[in-house]
Design a protein around this nucleic acid. Sequence first.
DNA 1: TGTCACCAGATCGTATATCATTTCAGATAT
DNA 2: ATATCTGAAATGATATACGATCTGGTGACA
Lengths: 244, 244
Amino acid sequence: MSAERMHPIESKSQQAYRFIRARIDDGRYVPGFRLVLGQIARELDVSVVPVREAIRLLEAEGLVTFERNVGAQVALIKEAEYLHTMQTLSIVEGAATSMSAPYLTPEHLRRAREINERMRRTLADFDPHRFTALNLEFHSVLFEECPNPHILDLVHRGWNRMKMLRDSSFSFVPGRAHDSVEEHERLVELIESGAAPLEIELAARQHRAATLDAVLAYQASHKLAVGQSAAAADPDHALTASND
Amino acid sequence: MSAERMHPIESKSQQAYRFIRARIDDGRYVPGFRLVLGQIARELDVSVVPVREAIRLLEAEGLVTFERNVGAQVALIKEAEYLHTMQTLSIVEGAATSMSAPYLTPEHLRRAREINERMRRTLADFDPHRFTALNLEFHSVLFEECPNPHILDLVHRGWNRMKMLRDSSFSFVPGRAHDSVEEHERLVELIESGAAPLEIELAARQHRAATLDAVLAYQASHKLAVGQSAAAADPDHALTASND
DNA sequence: TGTCACCAGATCGTATATCATTTCAGATAT
DNA sequence: ATATCTGAAATGATATACGATCTGGTGACA
């Protein structure tokens, strides 16, 4: 019992959870990927019971769907689902940002600006992957001092949903990244100026809403251009989207 | 296989989930109540595996705490937790109300008013249980047409957390119920007048925030009056609160 | 050729048994 | 009297085994 941790021995359920979760997050398990209990259990060298538990938890979070005697698969994000998640994110992110703002120090704002500058420099690279990562980093700094863990939890939930369409069907709306960087700078300035919480909240909310609008407009025009009337008429079709 | 439903045979996990959940909701399992797997399994005449799964789901929802090799218990709501949940509720309820408002018909508003009138009539009875139930009903009508199911889900999560202190440590802040009924009426009028979404959102948010303020003020004054400095100094002490 | 019955494989669902950890009471030593 | 040790009981965690259900395909039959 010498070189043994006293507390944190990870249970096999948690192990399975992290295993699956990591693969969903980094895109190895794309939406629609089928999760077979026995198979994952063998990969992890555990029994199916902990794997099942992990999958049920992921189901509760909305990351996978699970049907009795049929199986589980990574959840497919539909257009309506995307819209709702973005809408929800705009609200909770707005709240998180404004609640965090009063506690942000000049050092926080410096870090935020530094990250945003890196985003600006990647604009020419057209690297959605990296841009999204930096975007998360930027907003994480702004949320850092939010005193309400519940709100932060909701923000993270929303991000997780969004992450699912990261590698699988990501689309970069032309011009949106540039606008996003500009809005980031204005948001930092607003916080710096000691603006009223409500003003900050609405600015942050608007920032997310603008992305949603841009994606929807892009989707609409793209559909029209290609003339995919069938896809346009199907409210359940999978979506190509952005989350910056 | 004649008189058998084709789809909806409830799994034992779901059965266990509903069993426990119902008892938490109606107060038979008060916060702190210990949930022993084997015991619940025997009561339901199932094995411990589905019970365990149910408890893990409840843990994910924050309704119970679960520690490895120790066990589960109904979550205790602390003062900070209460504050955070109410704050979150004020935000998501505000959003849900304003998003629902444009779709509310005169019939909706009539029903809302009718429920609120029943609340008014119970003011003299001092029946917190009934008042809270009507309060939920009232707001449910206003949320009814919210087109974003995510937001509604968040509202319900918040309500579930609040429900936990319903019977256990419920306190009716003097005068708050009366104010609440008045605010309800004003909220309905605001919606009826076709006010801007943001205006409705802030009014709904304020309604919830006012309750929180009332509770905190009442708590503070009560503590001072009784002179429980020890309890006041402990940020983790259990809370007596209201959710109307 | 279309439809239906049926079978085989895949997969989930749960019970049971066993292992691991925690807790607590009682004993023992200081 | 206090602290520490010890072992049994309680409890959770997981593996294994078996049963139930769904799915897809195959072939008989009209």
